[in-house]
Each structure stands twice: as C-alpha cells, then as structure tokens.
Design a protein around this nucleic acid. Structure first.
Lengths: 132, 132
DNA sequence: TACATAGTGTTATATTATAACAACTAAAAA
DNA sequence: TTTTTAGTTGTTATAATATAACACTATGTA
C-alpha cells in the first residue's frame, strides 16, 4: 500500500474529510467544511491537497477540479490513475484494472517518448443513470 | 476528417489562432491576442472555445487548462483523446495510435459501465528535454 | 544546541470560468 | 414576404479556482 507519511494536522483533517466522502470534493467546499477546525484560508487547503496528491493519498479529477481519496493499491503514488465519471450523476470511481495499467505503463508513442505518469478519465453513464 | 461546421466569425478567429500555435493556448492568452480583432470579453472567448471543443476542432488539455487544435483524424469529434505532455518544456502532442484507440474504445470496467468518451494524458520528458 | 527542512497563518491577488439579459443574424417554415 | 426559431453576439458583473509573498513555527537530525 502506501508508504506512511505522518500527515500533519491540516493534511490529516483534509484527508479524513475527502476519505469519508462518497464523491470527489472541490477545494472551496473542503475549505467550507474545515473552517470549524481552524483552517481558514484557501491556501491552507491547497497546500494540504498538493502534498496529499504528491504522496498519492488522493487524486485530482482534472476535468472536475475535484479531489478523491485513493482506493487503489495499484496506482503507485499518483503516477498512474484512471477514473470513470458518470456524466449525469457525476459519480466518480477509480478504475483498478491490471490489464489497463499494464497496457498504459508499457505504451510508447512513435516518437519513443517515455512516460513517467498518466491520467485517464472515462466518461459515460453509470449503471443507475443508464436505467433511468 | 471533420464534418464541416461553417464557423462563425468569432469561432473562426479563435480557431485560426489556436491552429497556428505550436503549443496549447490558454483562454486569457487567446483573449489578449484577439482583442485587436474586436473580441473584448472572456465570455466571447469561452463561448467559441466551447463550441470548437464540441465539434472536435480543438481539444482541452485538462491538466493545463489550455486548448490545442485537433490534428488527429481518428479522434471522432472529441470523444476519444490522448496527449503526451512534456513536464519540462510543456510541449503537448496529440497521440495518434490505432492500437491505443482500439484498446480504450473497447475497455470495459468490472461494473460493465459503458463509456462514450475518454481523455488520456501522459506525462514525461520529450526527446529534447531528455537530452539536456 | 544549531541547523535544515517542511509546514503554518495571513493578506492580497492572479487566473479561470459562468450568470443574466438584451440585441442581432441566418435559415427555414408559414 | 413575414414570422419564427435556434443560435450567436456583446456587455456588465461576478463566481470559482488557484497562487505569490512574507513572517513565523514545528520537527528531525547532526
């Protein structure tokens, strides 16, 4: 799993909030939710988020500017991430597929560029929303 | 290639600028560059960008909040995009790989969610920056 | 202890993006 | 031709997302 990183107070408060959430959280919604715990400024939130992303405890969903806790032991410290995003209910799920990770980790473009990282976002309808 | 869409004046001005650029452009940098042509407000730029993305003439690089012209006949109207991004010089290249498109278009997660769209961003060093 | 490294709190500001509304234009239906 | 419709435009204002700069504090380690 993850290397232990001894989160600081702010990092812990913010990680716990994201970890408990069933959907991705946005920075200012996090801010609003932790103000009672003494975190008052956007920058305090963004600094914690940056660190948490860096150490792989959370991921940023780029197309949504939102953050989700990592629940996938195969995404080595934020280097290889894949998500499915429902375009109706906005439910986001981290994809854990050995086949996919392997395929993408080994992918080389025709310029021979070697990649150290990737992020993949799939869009569609989740099961619930398909049935509606 | 692309269905012809008879761009409007603003759409054309903005597409031409992006198309001529060797790297992705940000919305406000676009705004700055088209003010002499009478496009004065952010919203005029964002509206044109939205439309151009929708019809597949340009793509948004989500991790950079920037826009690049489509040079890939295989990305069917913005539904399936893949890019490589150099983390040093920020050069962005659209990846055109039949194998990759095919793999991702057919990918199904274990929930059986069917995807209508995806966006993939690879990060690493381009050839030039590797040699430095 | 002393030093380095990382995190904190704070104010201010930069950057990215959308809401709301009135007016205009082109294409097609009556 | 007139009317309608859908889409685009121009405009002001504002919302949402993110970072700069600076002084200070905590923690680990030599």
């Amino acid at each position: 799993m993850h290397k232990e990183h001894n989160l600081t107070k702010n990092q812990k408060i913010i990680f716990d909030l994201i970890d408990k959430s069933s959907q991705p959280l946005k920075a200012y919604s996090i801010l609003y939710n932790v103000q009672k715990k003494g975190i008052k400024a956007p920058l305090q939130v963004y600094r914690a988020l940056d660190k948490l992303v860096e150490i792989g405890k959370i991921h940023k969903i780029e197309s949504r500017n939102a953050f989700i806790a990592c629940h996938n032991s195969s995404c080595q410290v934020a280097k290889a991430t894949a998500f499915s995003i429902c375009e109706i209910c906005e439910k986001v799920t981290e994809i854990s597929s050995a086949g996919l990770s392997k395929y993408l980790a080994n992918f080389k473009d025709k310029d021979g560029m070697k990649y150290s990282k990737y992020n993949l976002e799939f869009f569609g309808l989740c099961k619930k929303c398909t049935l509606k």
